[in-house]
Measured scan of single mutants.
Amino acid sequence: KLNEKEKELCQMVRLVPGAYLEYKSALLNECNKQGGLRLAQARALIKIDVNKTRKIYDFLIREGYI
């Protein structure tokens, strides 16, 4: 299910792929509902370490998901 970049992200932030996909889905759904997504909203949405949230958020922006 994951592409190579997503696999690298999961290894870097030490997330299991299932958890990453869950977080990605939640962030994309919220982004679609709101018409955009700020980091503060992402942090409130997924209750994990803020540094991990930041890396996931930055990755999703860089890859054009949000």
Rank of each mutant, 00 (worst) to 15 (best):
K1I: 10
E4G: 05
P17L: 00
E8W: 03
E22N: 11
Q34V: 07
Y23N: 02
G35F: 03
E63Y: 05
Y23G: 01
P17A: 03
K55D: 07
K5H: 09
G35R: 07
A44F: 03
E8R: 14
E22F: 06
L15W: 00
C10A: 03
D58K: 08
A26N: 08
A26M: 15
G36Q: 08
E22A: 12
Q11D: 13
L39E: 11
L45P: 05
A19P: 02
L2I: 07
N32A: 14
K47W: 03
L45Q: 06
L15I: 13
C31E: 06
K24Q: 01
M12F: 02
M12V: 12
M12L: 14
C31M: 08
E30Q: 11
A44N: 14
G64V: 03
T53N: 04
Y23P: 03
G64T: 06
L21C: 08
L37G: 07
R54S: 14
L9D: 04
Q34I: 07
V16W: 07
S25N: 12
D49H: 07
Q41P: 01
M12Q: 15
V13M: 15
L60C: 01
L39K: 03
Q41L: 03
L15H: 02
P17K: 04
L15A: 00
A19L: 09
Y20F: 07
Y20Q: 04
I66Y: 03
V16I: 11
C31S: 13
C31Q: 07
K24H: 02
G36Y: 09
Q41A: 10
R14P: 10
I66F: 05
G64F: 01
S25A: 14
E63L: 01
A40G: 11
L28T: 11
K55H: 12
E6H: 01
K47S: 10
D58Y: 02
N29W: 06
Q34Y: 12
L60D: 06
G18W: 07
A40R: 09
N3E: 08
E6I: 08
L28S: 06
R38C: 15
C31Y: 15
I56A: 02
G64I: 06
A42K: 03
A19T: 11
G36L: 07
T53L: 12
I61P: 02
Y20A: 02
F59H: 04
Y20D: 08
V13Y: 12
L21G: 01
V13I: 14
E8G: 04
N29D: 12
C10P: 00
I61N: 09
K33T: 09
A26T: 13
P17T: 01
C10F: 01
N29R: 13
A19W: 01
T53G: 05
Y23S: 03
F59M: 02
D49L: 11
Y23L: 09
K5A: 12
L45F: 05
K47G: 14
K24D: 01
G18Y: 07
L60V: 01
E4K: 10
E4D: 12
A26H: 08
L21Y: 04
L21S: 07
L2C: 00
I56L: 09
A26E: 08
L2K: 00
I48R: 10
E63V: 01
R38W: 06
L15G: 01
G36K: 09
L37W: 06
D49V: 14
Q34N: 13
E4S: 11
R43G: 08
E63F: 04
L9K: 01
L9A: 00
E22K: 12
I46G: 10
L2N: 02
M12H: 14
D58E: 13
E6C: 01
N29H: 12
E22H: 08
R62Q: 13
D49C: 12
I46A: 11
L39T: 04
V13S: 04
L27S: 00
I48E: 15
S25F: 09
L15C: 04
L2Y: 01
C10L: 09
K5M: 05
N3I: 01
C10W: 02
M12R: 14
I66P: 08
E8V: 08
K33L: 11
D58M: 04
G35Y: 01
V13N: 07
G35C: 06
L37D: 06
R14E: 15
L60H: 00
G18I: 08
A42H: 03
E4Q: 11
E63I: 02
Q11V: 05
M12G: 07
F59G: 02
L28C: 12
F59W: 03
N29Q: 12
R62A: 13
E4T: 09
G64Q: 06
N32R: 14
A40C: 13
P17G: 00
D49K: 03
G18N: 14
L39R: 05
D49Q: 05
L27M: 11
L27W: 10
Y65K: 10
L60R: 00
R43H: 14
K7T: 11
A44S: 13
G36D: 07
S25Y: 10
E22P: 00
R62D: 14
C31T: 10
I61L: 15
E30K: 06
L9C: 00
A40F: 06
L60Y: 01
E30L: 11
E6T: 00
L45W: 01
A42C: 09
L37K: 06
V16N: 15
A26K: 14
K47R: 12
A44E: 14
R62L: 04
V16C: 14
Y65T: 12
V16M: 12
K33A: 11
